[in-house]
Design a protein around this nucleic acid. Structure first.
Lengths: 347, 347
DNA sequence: GCCTATAAATGGAACGTTCCAATAAATCAA
DNA sequence: TTGATTTATTGGAACGTTCCATTTATAGGC
């Protein structure tokens, strides 16, 4: 019973005593078929253990129902959330998205995109890997395939983008730190091959400028966007002659690392050094101390991206408006009390 | 230029002045064609912007190169790690796996499996959703499709399983707690609809029995397998007249929750109450206090599962040996010092 | 009873590949 | 030169669907 050659609609037709066309119609839920016939056919389908061959169907239809989601780092819960948000809306649209991970590797990404295209996807939602070359999506564009970027954008690309308002988020966080009385601020983690980095750093810079922080009191530390990167940034910062007293971190992972490094030095995050994260992953709330962070609602952005994609497919276009998602600063304990007021750090 | 009807091998053939068969041969890297011809054809491929239609190819070949990975919860880094491990080996085998998330929902899982089958996958690696009915994989079995379960198994199924040694892991962790001098132990989180639960709980029970803990001193608290669940378990445990002094948690998330609940009560994890986790996610090492946990090497299990799958496909079988992965207890700070010796909890 | 309108079912061509069997061209042994 | 052998290339059938144009059956109007 293991592998009796796969059943096709012809087998079903024979079994049910109808033509293959009738079977096809039933499969598509056409109203043209007499109900009793449909029942008979459906029974035959069950009996022969039929499984629909979407590849064969797409050969004629040219409109597949699969959508690919290409994610740069699935182990980062932030991006996993994004994927889950998208899935939610695709599910209710009756289509199953396939997720592929690029592990932040442009070469891998190339393979993944190629494979997805060969599979005949109807559209692609991509969070591009770091270091993606501008030409990487040329093929997709000339193929006229709907593509939307989520979370990240590419320097010079006409592909629609769904992303959080990184600039404003960084601005809010920086203003918060300045409001707490900090006058020497650092930006931890990230590197300039990422557009997001420039956006966040830009917000940081602008807030410093408009709120009166001298250029010499803004310290930029590039580094990995991980816990490890955060540790490294904090360590080099503290080794300075005049170290900063607060840092906005590229993302929460960096912030966790920074706080770890503080503890290792016997310093208390919040009291001795203020730390703000970015992304507001689930863990931020439960950390000790709870991390003040810029919330971006990644699941919501995922849903939005999925909706845009659905609309693009429906209207057979490859263009759509960008969408910049609102952000808000979630204040918790990692920035301690105001500095301006009492200097009672230890209390 | 947007959607000039998709190019096919016939277009390439015309462009290069050869037959479609020749193009097909080139596409497959056959050594039968004259190198100069191959070059000419490859140029034509580039010129017309051709994208291979794998669906059409599979119609003849019947052996697709796509493998599906069905994951029960992508937002759990533990399972995300599993997926990444699998990807690593598939990548080096030149095949791109497609990941689909079931969000722990058996209905969703059914849809996902159906869709993957229709897509003509060569094999399936599945971490089944909680509450999966025994019949859910009947179809796949009768279709003769290679399937392997990863991390989780189903009660009565002949599908090969790659999973950690849950029983032994729980045994080790429990023995550790007893060795620390604890005499009243709890098991926190999880519920009996999960085979893994019985395995871990079984290890806990057996260790208690063989190491002389009376049945009345083993407390079982079922609960969600999340931080929230851990908080709830700890709270009901502490509310008892004679609360336990240590707990083995179903997984790390539960353990984090349990520690959170301790802190909220003003108790110090490690010193006042010993906590052991399970899975050893990345976060465990960085928590405060660092969590003692049973490491299961999920990425390694993922790689193993992928290898088994590759072998199954190659030898066209649907059977394979189970593989139980080694586990080891990583002792950190969440169980404090020995109780047997000095009772200096506060030191 | 016949003609027309509607409903239900059907055959065949097409989709883009692969692969077998067959052909054409080149090489070699005599 | 001729026939045998090897090397490159090719046409055509097949894969499992969809969909159009037909055909067949059923009903309605007179």
């Amino acid at each position: 019973m293991a592998s009796r050659a796969k059943a096709t609609i012809l087998d079903i037709a024979r079994e049910a005593g109808v033509s293959k066309s009738t079977v096809s119609l039933v499969l598509q839920g056409s109203g043209l078929i007499r109900p009793e016939t449909a029942v008979k056919v459906r029974k035959a389908i069950e009996d022969v253990g039929y499984v629909y061959n979407r590849g064969a169907a797409n050969l004629r239809k040219a409109h597949s129902n699969v959508i690919g989601m290409v994610i740069n780092d699935l182990t980062n819960p932030f991006f996993a959330e994004l994927a889950v948000g998208m899935e939610r809306v695709f599910q209710s649209a009756g289509i199953v998205p396939f997720i592929a991970n690029t592990a932040e590797n442009p070469v891998r990404q190339e393979e993944v995109l190629k494979s997805l295209m060969e599979q005949g996807v109807a559209g692609l939602i991509v969070s591009p890997a770091r270091g993606t070359t501008p030409g990487a999506f040329r093929r997709l564009e000339t193929a006229g395939l709907p593509v939307v970027f989520a979370m990240r954008r590419l320097p010079e690309s006409r592909i629609p983008v769904i992303a959080p308002d990184n600039h404003r988020g960084a601005w809010l966080a920086t203003a918060h730190l300045i409001g707490k009385g900090h006058r020497r601020l650092a930006f931890f983690g990230g590197s300039s091959d990422l557009v997001v980095y420039h956006e966040r750093l830009g917000g940081f810079r602008e807030a410093c400028e408009t709120l009166g922080i001298a250029a010499g009191d803004r310290l930029i530390f590039e580094g990995e966007t991980s816990r490890k990167g955060g540790i490294a940034c904090m360590e080099t910062a503290l080794a300075m002659a005049a170290p900063p007293t607060a840092a906005l971190c590229f993302n929460d992972a960096v912030a966790f690392g920074a706080m770890l490094a503080l503890r290792k030095r016997g310093l208390e995050p919040g009291a001795d050094f203020a730390v703000v994260g970015f992304d507001d992953v689930a863990e931020a709330e439960h950390y000790m101390p709870a991390l003040t962070s810029v919330a971006v609602d990644s699941a919501g952005l995922g849903e939005r991206a999925a909706h845009v994609m659905l609309k693009m497919i429906q209207s057979r276009t490859t263009r759509a408006e960008d969408h910049i998602g609102a952000v808000n600063l979630v204040v918790r304990d990692s920035c301690g009390p105001d500095r301006r007021a009492g200097m009672g750090d230890a209390a």
